[in-house]
Every structure is written in C-alpha cells, then in structure tokens.
Amino acid sequence: MTKNKYIKPVAFPAATILVLVVSFFVMSAMSSMKTGMDVKVKVNSVTVLPLEKVDHSIVFSGYGEIRPGEETSLSSRVSGNVEFWSEHFVRGKTVRKGEVLYKLEDSRYQAELKNAEANLLEMKATLDREIGLGKVARSELKRVQSTVENSLFLREAEIKSAYAAVSSAEARLILAKKNLEYTVGRAPFDALVIDKNIGTGQFLAEGSNIATLYNINNVEVEIPIARFDNPFLLDELAGISVEVRLADSNRVGEGYLSRKIKIVDSRTRTHMVVAKLEGLFDKRSKNAFLRFGDFINVKFAGRTIKNVYKVPESLLSNGKLWVVKGGLLEQRDVTVIRNESGVAIISSGLEEADKLVRSVPDYPYEGMPVAVIPSDTINLL
C-alpha cells in the first residue's frame, strides 16, 4: 500500500503533460494548413539566354599533312659515268626548272651523233643519185619516143628505197642528239630534293634511280570530311579560300580548295577534299613558315543554314535543353544538326519566346517555378 501511494501522484502528471504537448503541435499544424499563412514554396533563381533565329554559315575544320601534288623519281635515260653534279643537288635544297643537276661522260654519244650525221649525208647523196638516174631514164624514153613507161626502167623502186633510207638516217640522228642531251640531267620543275643517289665517277646504267623530287609549285593537303558532314559542303569547291595554321603556332597561312576526291577511305570511312598551298619557298609569302610534312589545321566555309538557333553545347543533356516559359521550367527535345567549337546548331525543338536556362537548379523538374535574374545583374566573367 505504501509503494502504490507514492507512484501514482508522479506518473499521472508526466503522462498528462506529454499528451498536452502533442495535441498542441497537431492543432497548430492543422490550423496552419487551414489558413495557408505559414506554408511557403521555394522559388529558385536562374539566369537565362535569349533565343533568336539566325542564318549560320557552316565552317569546316580539319587536319591534314602537307604533301606534294607531284612527286618524281628521276632516272637515267642513258648509261655512263657521273662526271659532275651540282652543289644545289643535295637533300633538302631547292632547284629551279631546267637547272643542271648532273652530267655524264659523253664521248660515246658525241661519236654516235657524228656517225648519224655522216650516215644521213650519205643517204641523201644516194637519194640525189637515184633521182638523177630516174630523170635520165625518163629523157631516154622521150628520145626513143616510147609510149610504154616501165617503172623498173625509170628506177622508181630505187628512188623510194633511197627516200626510206634518208628517213631512217634522220630518225637515227634525232635519237643520237637526244641521247647526247640525256647525258645532262636537268630539273623537270621547281623542286625540293628529297634524296640523291649518285656520286662523281659512279657508273649509271640506263634506268638507274638518281633522285626523288617534290614539285614546290604543286603542294596539297587532304582534309577528311565525315559522311554526315557531306551535305554541308558547297556543290562547287574549286577556288574556295582556306585558312591554315600549325597546331603550335599563331601564324596563319592561306590557300584554296581544288577538288573533292570521290573515293571513301577504307579505314576511316571519310571523304577527302584537297586544298592547294602556294609560296612555301617564297620568303614574301604568308605560307613561308610551312614545310612538307607539317600537320596543319585547315578551315573553310560550307553552306549557309537558315533559321537555326545557336546555343552553348555545354547546356545540352542527352539532346534536351531547359527553358523558362511563363515562370516555369520546361524541358525540350531539340534537333542538333551540327556542333562547332562548343556551339550547338539547332534546327527544331525551340521557340523564340523561350528563354534558355544557363544555370539549371539542383534537381530540376517540369513545371518548377523559377525567378529569372535580370541580365544586367549577371557577372559574365
């Protein structure tokens, strides 16, 4: 009896206080829900970009190696010992068209030329004799007043044979002159010497490889174009200006497109367009800083696409963009037709009344209320 007497007065007030506290909070919450005065919805602030349709000129940018448009393996046309070669005829130097590169010992070919000239004189003398004998025969026929003209009597066969012998002698003379000319090797065009395979006193057989030459006035760069970019190329490429630069240099060169190679690369499945460069070896040229073998960036203009939107590529997520319309967030599926230097070119999915969200809130959702920060308060830096 004594123990129960002390417990009841203590337990009853504690339970009562707990019930009262819980009831107070429940009634306060219900009161707040009824009045709506204490419930607030968080509104996120966003920055936006205006949208405007524009006409955009496609710019192609690709990389390629500077290569010669014409490369020649110089070979000997006649045999003989190397008597001389030019000091300019060394690897890495340039030579001009017609410049003497080397000379072979030519006494044999001088003798052949003399023999050909003498043979021609002899054949011409034989022809003159046969023509004269034919005239004598014809006079004899007139003297005897014969009406029968015998071709054998008039020596027509001998005259024809003499004419043929003269023609043959003339051909041998032409060949002898050419062989003598071929003992002197000349540059076929303005060229860069890539390698040289002869030395003084060396015997060259006919057809021996002498050197490899690059034509310095015919310089090309092949630029790969992806198949999906082909529709953006202009129909007529010849003459379109290009801008070229080295990857590690700010110097800018120039050139022009010449053609499209109508062959698909078997490894990359790309097409190739060819650009021509001039003046690589002219100190006054904008391209004087370029060399064969340089790997360069080439830029040139393509088609102009009308009525498109240009937005930062970084704002795209899985082909979708967030916009603000009527103070609420909306997500749009857009059609990106091309990406250029961090800019996405969009043909559909947006409206000019939309405002493009630059700073998307955490955990965005369709219909999220947002407040647009005025552009004059945005620090673009």
Rank of each mutant, 00 (worst) to 15 (best):
I261N: 03
L257Q: 05
A111T: 15
S266K: 14
K8E: 00
L104W: 03
G69S: 10
V100N: 12
A29F: 13
V324I: 08
E70T: 15
T335Q: 11
N318L: 10
R284A: 13
G64N: 01
V357K: 07
A171D: 05
L127K: 13
R358P: 00
S347F: 08
E71R: 08
I337D: 08
S285A: 07
S258K: 15
T47I: 14
T268N: 04
F300D: 01
P312I: 01
G253S: 00
G349L: 07
I7W: 07
L173H: 14
S79D: 02
Y102C: 15
G255R: 13
F12H: 02
L127D: 04
D248C: 05
E105C: 05
I345F: 01
V244P: 10
S314A: 13
N307W: 07
F60A: 01
E52A: 14
S168W: 06
S249P: 00
V144S: 02
H56V: 14
M30P: 00
L74N: 11
V360I: 15
K93S: 07
P224S: 06
V10W: 07
D55Y: 12
S249G: 00
G239Q: 03
A118H: 01
A157E: 15
G367V: 09
N217M: 05
E340N: 05
Q110D: 02
V22E: 01
K310E: 09
N215R: 06
K310R: 05
S151N: 11
A116I: 04
R269V: 04
L356C: 02
M33R: 09
L356R: 00
T35P: 00
G62T: 01
I261M: 01
L154W: 07
S241K: 13
L74K: 03
G64D: 06
S28A: 11
S348H: 02
V78G: 12
S61T: 08
G92I: 12
A353M: 15
E87S: 09
K8C: 03
D282N: 10
S161Q: 12
K306D: 03
V273T: 06
L49F: 09
E99S: 13
L104K: 03
I194G: 08
V48N: 08
A275Q: 08
E170F: 11
G326H: 09
Q202N: 09
S45C: 00
A211M: 04
F300E: 02
F24V: 11
A162I: 02
K103A: 10
F289L: 03
E222P: 01
S341I: 13
S208L: 12
L316S: 00
D55Q: 07
V78E: 13
L234F: 00
E254N: 11
A157L: 15
E181R: 10
D128A: 04
S347D: 12
V336E: 09
V308P: 02
